[in-house]
Write a protein that binds this DNA or RNA. Structure first.
Lengths: 153, 153
DNA sequence: CTCGTTTTCTTGAATCATTCCAGTCTGTGT
DNA sequence: ACACAGACTGGAATGATTCAAGAAAACGAG
């Protein structure tokens, strides 16, 4: 039933209540940050130290079960959609993150024009905009706004 | 001669030694972080508080004289190349940032496939790789490595 | 040139996300 | 059941950045 445990095991990680809960949280939630995940985990299994949450998040990320994204101006967020090629759309007002399928369809989906000798491993694309919610109400529903992240393109 | 002062003035900012120095630093340096800028500024004009540096950096950024970029896992960096359409190539090992001209050539240079109702204002592209230096020496010259920033695409 | 107002700078403390540490506990393979 | 690597706990520490309140300086008016 609960493939979460199996996923952990086959990733070479021990199956503990904390990690199971972490993975479940991230899978059910949407681009949650560490604090939110910690809250969810605690709601599910009782006390878990903040450290254990960060620790588990790292382990799961290292194992490839989670992906960590870090939009400028907001704490790191985690998502369980891994191994495919997708990008993100971030609301400048409330910080909400949505997935976007790769624009071109192959990875890396964007090729740099000059590489300055770098070996390029990955292209990360972030679209900045305003979500439908924030378009209506000038203000976000409740979450604090991600500080503006400037930049052109 | 020194158009920096004029640039400040015409951006509606007062011309102070600190701000002139900040702008000069960023223009001559390459994607410097606040601390490095502060060091340079102090070298140029004597004591300037950290706060004044952050303050000036914000003001200049707000005024459009500077662009702030924030690659995952490293402190914010500032650049003076503004108003054009370019992206960045970041070294996973040493954190070095290089400019890359827009892949496609128009802004926004990448169009999302679905917008989920968002009003998209900007596309930010970051290429992750390893710089020439770090390819040779396994280790970076001296700067601490940006923590890995995961993610596929 | 001298004010007055407004912006900018100073010092110092605070915040937030995240990490470091050291010791204790617990899955797991044997 | 055992042993031990891996995971968890509590608590302190770090680093980048911000907040706050008062002092100083810039610039337009008179």
């Amino acid at each position: 039933m609960d493939n979460v445990a199996d996923d952990l095991r086959s990733a070479g990680l021990r199956v503990t209540a904390a990690r199971v809960a972490i993975l479940e949280q991230v899978r059910s939630g949407n681009h949650l940050d560490a604090e939110r995940i910690a809250r969810g985990v605690r709601g599910a299994v009782g006390h878990v130290s903040t450290q254990a949450v960060y620790d588990g998040l790292h382990a799961l990320t290292r194992a490839g079960l989670l992906r960590r994204i870090e939009p400028a101006g907001s704490p790191a967020r985690f998502e369980a959609r891994v191994g495919d090629n997708h990008h993100h759309l971030v609301c400048r007002s409330c910080g909400e993150v949505s997935d976007i399928d790769c624009v071109v369809g192959e990875a890396p989906c964007v090729e740099p024009s000059q590489t300055h000798g770098f070996v390029v491993e990955e292209a990360e694309v972030v679209f900045w905009g305003v979500c439908p919610q924030c378009q209506e109400h000038g203000a976000p529903p409740d979450r604090p706004p991600a500080r503006r992240a400037h930049g052109a393109s």
